[in-house]
């Protein structure tokens, strides 16, 4: 059988195995390939840096589920580390039922690194509230309308950090970590209506659709997929804020090698397709 025909009939399991090896080997033998920092990621970092320490809080919305956690968890960890190291206050909330669990898991993962950080003083976890649009809008009037208590049932009025926080006017920046179309809801109700500054961390699948909002300035910055998370990790590491294990950066070698393998497979697949097509044509013309 012609070589290209064999390629065309290759069992797809070999391709799965090839991709698995392309991801697996760089974990065991890291290549430390260079990673450039893009402007949208730098803009998110700069926006967080511009928040005065112990001043108005950063609001992080964890609007994702475990299915997108490999991309968005590293962003949450990096943002929390950045804020806790530099004494910036954080509010966390979820507009997605499973997002509350992701936020709690993120706090459980990061808080052991910061024994001095206290709930109610340095961060407030508001939990989940149903009714996405209504919640985003009510935050513009009064946070207490949507969240009378924090996720642990403590009244917001009794939390020292919330003393001067009433609505978007008192929130320095919102960063929405989302695996869905919820960032558009934030644009419509928080940015357009209340002029709130918004940065996003999104999955790579949805990143392309959000570039128009980035271009128009409705997003002040964007972390796109695992690469966006790795860029943020590098930025906080360059500043000397953390020496913790950088989950996204470690995975970028595998990402690059897997992309090269896929590129090679696309090229080989196309050559095989056209070669077998021309072989078929030759066969019919000779008959």
């Amino acid at each position: 059988m012609n070589f290209w025909k064999k390629v065309m009939k290759l069992n797809r399991r070999w391709i799965f195995l090839l991709i698995a090896l392309a991801v697996f080997i760089p974990f065991l033998k890291p290549l430390r390939l260079p990673l450039s920092i893009t402007k949208p990621a730098k803009d998110v970092f700069d926006a967080v840096e511009s928040i005065p320490p112990e001043g108005p809080p950063l609001l992080i919305a964890t609007d994702y589920a475990p299915s997108t956690a490999p991309e968005l968890d590293p962003m949450l960890y990096a943002l929390l580390r950045h804020c806790f190291v530099t004494k910036r206050r954080v509010m966390l909330l979820a507009l997605y039922p499973q997002g509350a669990g992701m936020a709690q898991a993120g706090l459980d993962f990061i808080l052991p690194e910061f024994p001095d950080v206290k709930s109610g003083e340095d961060y407030v976890f508001l939990g989940y509230q149903p009714g996405v649009q209504a919640v985003v809008m009510s935050l513009g009037e009064d946070v207490r309308l949507a969240f009378p208590t924090d996720a642990y049932g403590v009244s917001l009025d009794s939390l020292p950090m919330m003393e001067h926080v009433r609505n978007y006017d008192d929130i320095a920046l919102v960063v929405d970590l989302a695996g869905s179309s919820i960032p558009i809801t934030w644009v419509i109700y928080a940015v357009a209506r209340y002029g709130q500054r918004l940065g996003v961390g999104v999955t790579a699948v949805s990143a392309a659709q959000y570039y128009p909002y980035l271009n128009s300035g409705q997003f002040i910055g964007m972390l796109g997929g695992l690469k966006g998370a790795a860029e943020y990790e590098i930025l906080i590491q360059q500043k000397g804020y953390t020496e913790a294990r950088q989950i996204a950066t470690i995975g970028m070698d595998s990402q690059s090698i897997a992309h090269l393998v896929i590129l090679a497979l696309i090229i080989i697949g196309n050559i095989a397709f056209f070669a077998s097509k021309s072989h078929k044509k030759k066969g019919t013309s000779s008959k």
């Binding site: 991709i19 698995a20 991801v23 697996f24 974990f27 065991l28 299915s67 956690a69 490999p70 991309e71 968890d73 999955t203 790579a204 699948v205 949805s206 990143a207 392309a208 659709q209 796109g224 997929g225 695992l226 690469k227 989950i247 470690i250 995975g251 595998s254 990402q255 897997a258 992309h259 896929i262």
Partner: peptide, 25 residues
């Protein structure tokens, strides 16, 4: 635009595998 979207989709799927590989290893 479709090409850019597809490229990002490939990146996302590989990221999920990376996440699981990191967990296993």
């Amino acid at each position: 635009a479709f090409g850019a979207s597809f490229g990002y989709t490939v990146m996302a799927r590989i990221s999920l595998l990376i996440g699981r590989m990191n967990f296993l290893l």
